[in-house]
Structures are given as C-alpha cells and as structure tokens.
Design a protein around this nucleic acid. Structure first.
Length: 676
DNA sequence: GGAACGTCTCTTTTT
DNA sequence: GAGACGTTCC
C-alpha cells in the first residue's frame, strides 16, 4: 500500500480526518506520493471513488497520480475518480449535465473581440492616454474575471487603473456586446467554463463530492477558489507551497493559501519538511534566495539525500549564442540520458536559440507546447472545417476557413457569415440548404450610434448572373448569399466548394470519419493547394511542381495523423474540446527537455540548466513595471533551481549581438552567493 | 474610399 | 508567428 512508504509527516497528512486540510509541501518533499496515499486512504476507508474530486494543474499530472493509485486498485475503481484541471473537470461535469459547450481558444476570441473593438471610436474622447487594444483588453478582462468575484469590470478597473476612466463606458459596452455575441454563437472560453460550472453548482445538488483534493494550491486564483467553495465539500485536501506561487499574472492569489487556516473552520495545517529530490548544495542555494521573500509559514527543510554531488556551477559567456552553443556541447557530453536533462528559462523566446544550437549539434530535444502539430495551418484548417460542422453557428471557424479563399478577406468573410447566419435563422447549414426567402435586408447592418462609437452603413445587392456558367449547383445558385456585391468569382467558387463539403458532412457521426470527409473534400484540397504554393514559392514567383507536390503530401499526411488521433473520441464535439483543453500538454518526440519555468512546475530532472540569467530578462524588468513583483520573480528562480536532483548549472551571457544589448548578471545570482 | 494583400517589428508566464 | 503598418488593387 502506498501509505507504508511514507514518512511520519506525510502519513499524518495522508491519513488526516475529513475536514479542511492544508498541506504545505516544499519543493521535492513528496507531495505527489502524499496525494496518491491520501486517495488510497480514502478508498480504503469506504469513500466511493466517484465521490472523490482531484484537481491538478495539468491533465497529465492527474493522469500520473491516478496511474500510481492504479497500482493498488483496480482500474474500474480509479477510472471513477473525477480528475483533471479545473477546466477539464468543469467541462466534463457540465457535459454530464447536458450542457452544450463550444470551447474556444483565447486567440480566436481575441479576434472576435477585436471585430467589436474595431467598430468603436475613441478619437472623440480627449485624453492623454491611448485606449487599450482589443488583445490587451481581452487579457485585462480575463485577469479581472480570475481576480475578483464581487466587483464589476468597471469597479475593478477603477481600483487598478483610473487613468482610463474616460474609456470605461466604451470598454463596458464592448464587453456587453462581446458576451452577447458569445452567447449567440454558443462560445465559451476558459473563464466562462469555470463561471458556468460555479453558477450551475448553485442550482443543482446532483454533483457532490466527499473530498476535493487540490494540487498546486498556491496557484489557485479567486475564481478557482470560488469554484472550490461552490462544491460545498465537507472535506478539502489542499497541497501547495507559497514559495512556488508563480501565476499572479493569472490572478493567483497567495492570500488563498495564506489565509486558509482562518477562512475554514477547524482547519488543519500539515508541513512536509523532508526533501527527497535535490542534493544538499542545490537545496541550500535555492533556500538562500527564497529566504529573501517574506515567510508565510515557518519552514525548515531537511536534506535526505546522501552521497557526493557536484556543487552548482555558474557559467558566464560573452555572447548569447556562445552561451547556447557551449550549453549544447555540455549536454552532448553529459553522462545523463537526454530525458533526464532539462534546460529551463524565464522567457520562451530563449527556447528558439537553444533549440537551434542543440539541433546543430545533432541533439534531440522536445519543447512543451512549442510550434507543434496543432499549431500548423493545415491542422487548424481541418479543425475549423470540423468546427463549422459541429457548430453551424461557429463564426470564427467559418472565417478562418475562408482565409484561404482568394478574393475574400476578413471583412467579406464576416459579411458572408452574417448573411448565411441570417438566412438560416442562426444556423449556417440552414443558411446554405434551407435559406429564408423573405430576407430583403440580409446585408443590412446595425444602426448608427455615434455616442458609443458605432458606425456602419448599408450596401447594395449584386447580381447572381455573374456566376452563371461556372457549373455551380442549381440550389446553390438560387441562394441569396450570392447577391453579395463584393463576392468575386474566386470567392464564389470557394463558397461553392464549402457548400458541397457541408452538404454531406452533417450526418457524419464520428470525428474520424468527419476528418476523412474533410480530406476528400474540394475545399480542403483548395486550402492544401494554397498552403503548398505558399510553402514552395520562390522569391522570383516561380514554383517547383515537384516540391509543391511534396508539400501537399506532407499536409495530407498530417491529416491522416489527425484522423488517427480522433479515433478515440465518440463525437466530434468532444474531440474538438479535448484538444482545446489539453493539446499543448502533448509534446512530441524524445530528447532533452526545453521548458519555461512555468512549464517546469512539478517536474524534476537529474541535470538542470537554468540559462539566460541576466538582469532585465530574469527578473523580467519589463513585467515588473506592469505590476509584476520581485517576490514573484524570486519564486520563479526558486522553482527553476529546485527542479534539479543531482546537477544544477546556471548561466548567463554578457551581450546579445542581435539585439545589441549588454547585460549584467541577475541579482538572484548574488543572492544565491554565486556572484559577489 | 475601402478592402485585400504584402512587409516589417516585437515577442511573459497558462488553462 | 502574430500584429501593426504600408502598398496595391478594385
């Protein structure tokens, strides 16, 4: 049983009575083992597996924990445990309650917000500050949603940034329209998922858990905290370490862990002090730095590992790339297996440089969430085509698909969507195949409203006779959408291909056969053609047909890969949403791990390189001006260094020849005693 | 005049 | 690789 392997501290935490339990688990003190043992303890003492809820920071972490529980219990038991990220769990539970959800990536919703933002005018307001861009506003709103559950957006803005007071009415109006539009299209973003879950819990009592376990509790934000409370569980098992709280930018509130003992009645606080991960010298380096931060709970870390290990090293280089090259060479000659080695950095931009030099020297590496399979244009295009079928009012998926139509830009594709949307009473499929005939004003738009910065006008209709003699289907030719005056022949041809794709797609049940249908469709063939040309066109405009054919073949190969990935899913909707919830957790291939500090959370490696330790880049001074704190950056340094088990190598470069910037060492190196 | 399309700069961290 | 900006096209 997992309990027998625990030390006394861990065991008393894992066997704590039902109630509000907080476990302070410093880096490397075996918190995963403790959670695994806790679940085993609950199961042994009669808790129904379906009454256990395990919330983790990544779905992978949850899966690994359950796998470890699965060593001692049958899979039929562990599979009943509800587990995953806040978002994945919320999605699954909402689905169980019959909610229809179209989960969208923030990037997509930013574009949607931008289209609303673009129609607002700010220039009539006399202000010394410039209004926020749509993308920034989206992030700001997201931070607001994660940071408070009591204030309105304007109230929150007022307490954070009153300089923009003149724009608050417009911002508020933009989001009013944004939320209405999301409702109309059925879109839900990551935050909506949690808010929807929380509000649903208020009206239903069919979902209840005997114990909720929360990993990485220090990174819980106010919204997530309110969701935890909405479960009304009589027992909580929260595991975290305030020194590893690194998600303030996402509203993570260190007070949530700090005030645990006073917020919950009869709370118990356990502390795990024995470190099993790092060598003595690595640990004392990390501790020297983190001790500069205020202590929320007393901690006394004990080293348990015996043996002789190398002391942490600091390597200094003259130039950024010579640093990357030297580190790559060190890795090449390392005695450790590539999978046991990690290169960790503050900013993702570092990854490009180090990846290039590693490749140069023939060393395989993997990047979490990097430019992966799902980021490629062809995969996105396939998923967008699937998206329109799954949700025939998905404007974003429609617009993205039409990016590849010649003669159709962002504004025309939006108007085509609007037209079909109206013709089909809110359903593109109906708009294509069963359009209303009483619509005189399908292209008429919103009335003018200069007060809120809205401006729009009405356009005249074009003639359909433009499109005779192209072999279009009769029914298609009779569709009023072809009266759009801006529609060109190329545009109409693409629209026709899209129409034919849609015609046979809606009856297809499994995502696998739907992707098959995409691959054999004319639309996707046209999209693949555009992409293949774009990838093989030379500077003088000529195209090598052979190279183009190869590019096309690569695109379709990815299509078959996607088809295989979809095979495990019963519905296309679930497949799409699962990708949004967890696609960036899949990392391809084997090799040395390249990780941002945030992505390295919870992981450990024998040999760790923390690179680009220059003042300005780490701590990131730019961010600190925008509300980041030195304490948070210090916690990041602590997280990075405590990933190391046997070897820790720190490095920095004095000069960046591309950006022409000179650097000095990070102040954390001084605090660590590596620079005097 | 407006939209489509091409070129240039900048890049925090995540579900 | 995406967004801002400028150029070309209708």
């Amino acid at each position: 049983m997992p309990l027998s392997r625990l030390n006394a501290e861990q065991r008393s935490a894992a066997t704590a009575p039902s109630g509000y339990n907080l476990i302070i688990a410093s880096a490397g003190t075996g918190k995963t083992s403790t959670i695994v043992a806790r679940i085993a303890h609950l199961l042994n003492h009669g808790t129904q597996p379906s009454k256990i809820l395990l919330l983790t920071f990544t779905n992978k972490a949850a899966a690994e924990m359950l796998e470890r529980v699965g060593v001692f219990f049958d899979k039929s038991i562990t599979s009943q445990i509800e587990s995953g990220t806040f978002h994945a769990v919320s999605y699954r539970l909402l689905k169980k309650l019959g909610r229809n959800i179209v989960l969208k990536q923030p990037k997509d919703l930013k574009i949607l917000l931008k289209s609303i933002h673009d129609r607002r005018r700010f220039d009539h307001i006399d202000s010394s500050v410039k209004a926020y861009s749509a993308a920034y506003l989206y992030d700001l709103f997201s931070l607001y949603q994660n940071s408070t559950v009591t204030q309105s957006f304007t109230e929150w803005l007022e307490s954070n940034d009153s300089e923009h007071g003149l724009f608050f009415d417009i911002y508020e109006d933009i989001f009013e329209e944004f939320q209405a539009l999301k409702r109309e299209f059925g879109y839900v973003d990551f935050n909506d998922l949690l808010i929807l879950m929380r509000d649903t819990l208020k009206t239903t009592d069919t979902l209840s858990f005997d114990e909720v376990l929360i990993d990485e509790y220090q990174d819980t934000n106010t919204l997530q905290g309110s969701l935890i409370d909405a479960f009304h569980s009589k027992s909580l098992f929260c595991v975290g370490d305030y020194d590893q709280s690194i998600y303030a930018f996402n509203g993570a509130n260190i007070d949530i862990i700090g005030s645990f003992a006073t917020r919950y009645p009869n709370a118990n606080v356990f502390t795990l002090n024995k470190n099993y991960r790092s060598s003595h010298k690595i640990l004392s380096l990390a501790n020297r730095v983190i001790e500069k931060n205020p202590r929320l709970y007393e901690k006394r870390l004990e080293v348990t590992r015996d043996g002789t290990f190398e002391a942490p090293k600091l390597l200094i280089y003259d130039e950024l790339f010579s640093q990357y090259q030297a580190i790559s060479t060190l890795i090449k000659h390392s005695m450790h297996a590539p999978a046991d080695i990690a290169v960790i950095f503050r900013n993702n931009s570092t990854a490009d440089g180090i990846e290039a030099t590693l490749r140069e020297q023939g060393i395989a590496c993997k990047r979490k969430g990097g430019i992966s399979f799902f980021d490629s244009a062809e995969v996105k295009a396939m998923l967008d085509l699937v998206g329109v079928v799954v949700n025939p009012k998905d404007m974003m998926a429609f617009i993205h698909s039409f990016e590849y139509a010649r003669g159709v830009g962002s504004s025309l594709s939006k108007e085509l969507f609007d037209g079909l949307f109206k013709l089909g009473n809110g359903n593109i499929y109906q708009g294509f195949f069963n359009p209303r005939d009483d619509v005189e004003d399908i292209f008429k738009k919103r009335a003018k409203n200069h007060q809120l910065g809205l401006f729009d006008d009405i356009i005249d209709l074009g003639s359909v006779s433009r499109f005779y003699n192209f072999g279009f289907e009769e029914l298609f030719l009779s569709n009023p959408i072809l009266k759009h005056p801006k529609l060109t022949t190329d545009g109409a041809k693409f629209l026709h291909q899209f129409y034919k794709f849609m015609k046979h797609a809606t009856r297809i049940k499994t995502p696998q056969s739907l992707i098959n249908h995409v691959l054999s469709s004319e639309v996707f063939s046209a999209i693949a053609e555009v992409l293949a040309i774009k990838r093989t066109i030379k500077k003088d405009g000529t195209i090598d047909e052979k190279l183009k054919a190869e590019a096309r073949a690569r695109i379709f190969r990815k299509g078959h890969l996607l088809k295989d990935l979809a095979s495990g899913y019963a519905s296309s909707e679930r497949f799409l949403n699962a990708l949004t919830l967890g696609s960036n957790e899949m990392s391809e291939g084997e090799g040395v791990n390249l990780l941002s500090i945030h992505a390295s959370k919870g992981l450990e490696f024998k040999e760790v390189y923390v690179i680009d330790l220059m003042d300005g880049r780490f701590p990131n001074r730019k961010l600190m001006q925008k509300g980041g704190s030195l304490e948070e950056e210090r916690r990041l340094f602590y997280v990075a260094t405590t990933r190391a088990k046997d070897m820790l190598i720190l490095s920095y470069a004095k000069y960046d020849k591309i950006k022409k910037i000179s650097y000095t060492h990070s102040p954390f190196l001084v605090e660590a005693g590596m620079v005097h």
